[in-house]
Amino acid sequence: MCETCGCGDTNELKIHDRQHSHDHEHDHEHSHDHNHDHNHDHSHTHTHDSVLFTHTHDHGAKKVISLNVDILSDNNRLAQINRKSFEERNVLSLNLVSSPGSGKTTILEKTIKAIIANRKIFVIEGDQQTLLDADRIEKSGAPAIQINTGSGCHLDARMVETAFKKLDVEPNSILFIENVGNLVCPALFDLGEFKRVVVISVTEGEDKPLKYPYMFKSSHLCIINKSDLLPYVDFDVDKTMEYARSLNPNLEFILLSARTGEGMEMWYEWLGKQK
């Protein structure tokens, strides 16, 4: 079991750079903290103002360590570090999340072709197994790095940190992070992105927001893709937006078709508006 990335096997997490070398990153944190152990004879009901302090009680050989530590705190801390590195370089970082096949890679391919002349673009591609998406992105003209998560179903802040360094992202560029196709846990793992973009397509159900409330709640923009298929499917755009807004009143929406290009201008405009 891989300790760092949570992939099923130590050889599973692969970060591929443009030459497709196979690296494997494993950081092990060794803390060198010391505790203030204090022995209480018996009763130890006391309140702790901060959840950040480790608190130790000795009971003979046994010790009760009261932690109250957020299980995702390690990831959140790293995400903050990423956020700072992005900001320092004035990199606009966007985390794209969706179910498999909603059109994230297609949207990126079109976006790169449309705006690469005006702004540098870099892409981190998350996928469980293949290198296909990064190849598609590079063909469109942007440097890409592929992270294969193996059996891991989301990207985490540490993987993004490593990929960001390898990719050597230039200042003032846009960094797109295409997350693993999954609307569940990517919602819980902050990558340090400036904004999160959730993509759904009209071939999915209108109740997507209700089924995956965390994702819609944590996103800033919702792209409704494959608008070219609207005449053929039974998908109510207004209803989807209403459901999503009930969870997140500030969510913005763009209806577009990556295939025909309809609505893509709105997306480019939105990108241009992000500071």
Partner: peptide
């Protein structure tokens, strides 16, 4: 799937705390 990753986070966190406290 999702819960597996979270379970791993917990195991790692427990491991780190055990080391910090020199617990066997």
């Amino acid at each position: 799937m999702h819960e597996f990753s979270l379970a791993i986070e917990v195991i790692n966190l427990a491991q780190r705390e055990a080391e910090k406290n020199m617990a066997g």
